[in-house]
């Protein structure tokens, strides 16, 4: 049985204390502090990372539950010298202010665009069976798991829309 997690493409050992959340594993063991701790209880979304292609709250899962899994954090999406298109769009449209919720927003949005492409429905979808669109209302609902206390939501939606339309 493997006891490692693949983090941004690199296999890393799981810590011995099973209490360590995936979030604390990333921040403390791996030094990947781009993933933020805002509430530690799944109530803010700042800790959102992508595990095996799905976005999750890394605070509400244990590192020990993820052996063999593949985790992508904000650091795995882009760097200051090579940012992802969404990262660039967030800067261009000022989709943040203090920046603390931002990595979670971007991880969340990255996975969300894949979910729309895969036809996942949301509470805002009028037709559960139709093709899913990255409409403003869909984006707002699908991004509602990421709180932004600075109130950058309008700009976040604009930034995501730009990338969604570019993909189309």
């Amino acid at each position: 049985m493997s006891k490692t997690i693949t983090v941004n493409g690199t296999e890393r050992p799981i810590p011995s204390d099973p209490r360590v959340s995936l979030l604390d594993f990333l921040r403390e063991n791996e030094g990947l502090t781009g993933t933020k701790k805002g509430c530690d209880h799944g109530q803010c979304g700042a800790c959102t990372v992508i595990v095996n292609g799905m976005r999750i709250n890394s605070c509400l899962t244990l590192a020990a539950m993820h052996d063999g899994d593949s985790v992508t954090t904000i650091e795995g999406l882009g760097t200051p010298t090579s940012p992802s298109p969404l990262q660039v769009a967030f800067v261009e449209h000022d989709g943040f202010q203090c920046g603390y919720c931002t990595p979670g927003q971007i991880c969340s949005a990255t996975a969300m665009l894949d979910e729309i492409a895969a036809g996942f429905a949301s509470d805002a979808s009028e037709d559960l069976l139709g093709e899913m669109q990255a409409s403003p209302e869909e984006i707002r609902e699908r991004m509602s798991g990421n709180l932004c206390r600075c109130g950058a939501y309008a700009n976040i939606v604009t930034a995501i829309r730009e990338i969604a339309q570019g993909d189309a």
Binding site: M54, N57, L60, T61, S122, D123
Partner: peptide
């Protein structure tokens, strides 16, 4: 289900 929680939570 879609009215509950968030996508991140529903994924788990």
């Amino acid at each position: 289900i879609l009215a509950g929680a968030t996508q991140q939570l529903r994924n788990r």
